[in-house]
Nucleic acid binder design. Structure first.
Lengths: 139, 139
DNA sequence: TTCTAAATTAGAAACTATTCCTAATTCGGT
DNA sequence: ACCGAATTAGGAATAGTTTCTAATTTAGAA
């Protein structure tokens, strides 16, 4: 609790209860949650919480580079607490999003083909190792 | 017209007028259009066209690997006629999506960290060269 | 060419993620 | 404790997409 409050204060973000709880959730759950997942997990503990607040909070976290936004799936936006730059794997079977310890040649580059790079997203899609194992048992 | 009809027939897709027109549009416009862009461009020439048909058609084209889906922007899906594998650049200023002649070390790989790869998406975001030039004149 | 069954299309309605709006609440400094 | 400013909650609005159903079109058989 204090840890997350401190992180917010250090960045100059007012440490409201809702923001602290959302930040804590993101730090403890590396599942690249959607707004619904965050809301669903927290509204029991923070009964007055509204989805608007989750949206507002994530917008602020984005602005202050506390979270990254993933557009790896087609229907909703996913969020993750900013760590080292890394790529992602989306499993078409179970829907999980996994962090990959893979990085891009351009990670440190300032530009590609004359365009100024501000962010890089590497999305791999397919079947995750866990689902591949399950598949073996079936077929 | 005949060219696109042939492409559809070759793949085993019934070459309806709407499908031919949508395929032609995708081939001639490498702007990674949204459904709205496709609909907006075609409904003048194909007055009875409905958005549902655009959605249906793109779903079929996807199924038959005629188009790729891009989730590079946050609010809508974009489509492109399948060409060589390549990465994309999204300009935060003008909103354009550009093809990059950049490819990934994993492009030919079957898997990463035990996960089976079926598709790779490389999205770069920042300011495109054209906008950078405009900026120079301003500041 | 005509007929028929199956596939496709159009348009409206439904759905869902996100944004917008406004009043009530909370926050931090005084 | 008080006050102005920031934040929050919740409902309404919006936009992209999907679903539903009837009408139309298609391709193949007669």
């Amino acid at each position: 609790m204090e840890k997350y409050k401190q992180i917010l204060v250090d960045r100059g973000i007012k440490p409201t209860y809702q923001r602290i709880k959302i930040l804590e959730y993101l730090d403890k759950n590396h599942s690249h949650p959607t707004v619904d997942m965050i809301y669903g997990a927290l509204y029991k503990k923070v009964p007055t919480l509204s989805k608007t607040t989750v949206y507002n909070t994530l917008d602020i976290f984005r602005e202050y580079d506390l979270v990254d936004v993933l557009t790896i799936t087609e229907s909703e936006i996913r969020y993750e607490y900013v760590l080292q730059p890394h790529h992602h794997f989306f499993c078409k079977r179970c829907g999980k999003i996994l962090d990959l310890d893979v990085n891009c040649v351009y990670q440190e580059a300032m530009c590609v083909e004359g365009h100024k790079i501000e962010a890089i997203h590497g999305y791999f899609k397919g079947i995750c190792s866990e689902c591949l194992l399950k598949n073996e048992n079936v077929s």
